[in-house]
Structure formats: structure tokens, C-alpha cells
Simulated assay, not measured.
Amino acid sequence: MNNTILIVDDNPTDLKLSSALLSKNFNVIESSSGEEAISVLLSGDCAPQVIILDASMPGMNGYETCQIIKQNPDFAAVDIIFVSGHDSIEEKIKGYDAGASDFMVKPVQPIELIKKVNSALQHYTQFQNACTESKIAMETAMTAITDAGELSTVIHFMRESFQCTSVKSLAKLIVSSAAGFGLENSIILQTSHESIAETSGNRIPPLEYEVLSTLKNAKRIQQMGRRLILNFGTISQLIKNLPDDEEKCGRLRDHLALILEAATSRLKAITLMNEMKIVLDCTKVSISHYQENKTIQREANVQVMDDLMIELNDNLFQYGLTEEQENVLLKMVEKYNLKTLSLYEQGDSGDQELQAIANKIAQSVSGA
């Protein structure tokens, strides 16, 4: 059976255009107002997997419509894609606060529309398949909190953070630690080389990612209703479901701030470690090239001295030297040839010391 898409738009032309694009592959239901859309949903005759919603409509606008839809548990998992003639960050934040998961700007491009609908359908399918597993995981997390207490989660993070050797593993640990408090959360860690996002949910919707990236420059701790934004420079975290209990909420804010303080320090260490690995790799390559070039040069010098000895032996008789003089000259050349080889051997000792230093640095980096 085809997936159902509900399109809500007061503009008949836009409504028909979107419907025509999607009706080839999906079961499309059209609605010309927010009031009509809610009526259709509540009637039980329509159970869409994706809703495409015009932001600006007379009467009940798209934001109000979205809020009402999302308040109904039957449609909480349905992705709502806003369509708007405005492309401002304020408009996108309004859409995110209303409950939308994605955003498109009019005029809608067919390829973009189909791509976003397919992405939303994939999310819906993944959400349905993961519901039971997520419920069990949340119950397990809540049981652990009850048995061990909130502070054990912080201690666990402190201990495990030293085992994190990548930005990705650190991001996962932060998210799982916050989830240990029963908090739905998303996080972005940024370095000069990469930006890593993680979430306790199935995925980070594009609009949520954009909003979180925008809010990273806001004040350090900012609470908006049940949402909490924590900004620690290179780390920004969004908490989506703070408890109503103000005392517990205060404790969790303190725990989360402590975790991010520690995470910031660990992120710096990981970044430094990665940079040291890059420098170490470059050093090893340089040492290898230097040793290769030195070997080639030594062999060339030896060959030059050998050629000199051969040429002297072949031509000494032409210079009218006595046998004794010839022997003195040959011994002198051989003497300085041996001195040249001795200098190369001393250089080899220095090469070994340099390689030993590089190996010690490598051991330190791998053990960090």
C-alpha cells in the first residue's frame, strides 16, 4: 500500500502542483486550510506518514496548525515539512518551535520536494521500527538512574571520557550520558577539521541541525520552557524535555554543565592528539626520505673515492713518482676515504637517536 501524504496549502496552484508531483508514487490528500486539515485528521479517515504544510495561510496559519497536530499523540511521529515564501532564520526557528522537521522555500523545486518527502518517510519507518526498542532502552536508563543516582552518571562520563580517542566517540558518550538522565538531546562538536552531530533520537532533522548550529553562539546556558541550550565554545547541546520539577531541573542543569566542561577539555586533548599524529606521520616520512637520500649520497661518495683510487693506480706511472711516493699518495687517499666513511657512520648514530625520539612520541600519542 502506498504511503499517504497530506498537503495543506490555501493557494490552489501550489496545492495542485505539489499534488501532481507526488500522486505518481503516493496516496495524496489535499487540504486548503489548517482547519480543514485538522478536521480530516481527527475524522480518522486519513493517517498520513508525511504532512506538507504551508506556513502562511489565512485563519489558522501553518504554525498554529502544526502545534495542534503535534499535540495529538497519533501524529507525534509524523514529519511535518513547512513550505514558506520566506527564507529567514527567524522563520525556520518558528517552524522548529512549532514542531516541524524540515523546511522548503517557495517556489518548491520538484527534485527537492521528492527528496525531502522520501527522507521523511524513511524517518517515519525507522521510528516505527525502533519504537519498542527505544521504549525498552528508556526504561532501562530510568531504572539505572533510580538505582545508581544522578551523580553516578556524571562519574561514569568522567571515567569513560578518558577512553574516547575520537570526536565521534566523545559525542556519543555525551549524548548517552544525558540520555541516562532521561533527557532527549542532540549535540554538535566542532573542531578545525570536522563537525560531528549526535542525537539520542533516530536522527537529527535538518531543521533541528540548522537551528542548533545557529544557536551555538548564544549565551552559555539558555532555557526556553522545557528546552535547554548549553554552549561551551566547541560543544553545543540541545535538551528537549527538561522535567517540570524545578528542583530536579536545576540539578540536571548543573550535572550537564559539569559534563560539558569535562568534555570540552577532553575534546581539546583529542584534537591535540590528532594534530600530533599528523605531525608525527610527517616527521616519519621526512626521516625516511632523509635516510634514503643519505644512503644514496654515501654510496655516490664511496663510488667517487673508488673511481679516484682506480684512476690513480692507472696513471701514477705517468707522473714519474718513485714507488715509495706512489705508496704514500695512495695511503693518503685511502686514509681520507676512511675518514669520510667514519663521518657517515657517526651520522647514522644521530639518525638512530632521531628515530628513537619519533618512536617515543608515537608511544606517547597512542597511549594518550
Rank of each mutant, 00 (worst) to 15 (best):
M158C: 08
E353P: 00
F317P: 00
D79K: 05
P243C: 06
L53P: 01
I278S: 10
M60A: 07
G250K: 12
K216E: 04
T132Y: 05
E194R: 10
K168H: 09
V285W: 04
N327I: 08
D281I: 09
H156W: 03
I196M: 06
A197T: 13
S200W: 00
K360I: 08
Q222S: 14
Q122H: 10
I196H: 01
K240V: 07
C249Q: 10
L354A: 13
P206H: 02
S18F: 04
S32K: 09
Y63G: 02
A263G: 06
V40M: 13
E210Y: 04
S43H: 06
I7T: 03
A37E: 00
S119G: 09
I204K: 05
G34M: 00
K277C: 04
D10K: 07
Q109M: 08
M332H: 13
G225L: 08
S186W: 00
Y319L: 15
A300M: 11
G233Y: 05
C131K: 12
K70F: 03
I174G: 00
D147I: 15
R253M: 12
Q318F: 10
F157C: 05
F162S: 11
Q346P: 00
E35N: 13
I29T: 13
S176V: 07
N293W: 05
E139A: 11
G201D: 08
Q297Y: 10
M332Y: 14
L238Y: 01
K339Q: 12
R253K: 15
I111Q: 10
T234G: 04
V154P: 01
T322I: 08
K268S: 13
I229K: 04
H193E: 14
T264H: 06
D351S: 15
L321K: 07
I52Y: 01
Q363V: 12
I361S: 02
L341C: 08
K339V: 10
S288H: 11
S236T: 15
E210M: 09
L42Q: 12
N274M: 10
V78E: 00
P243M: 07
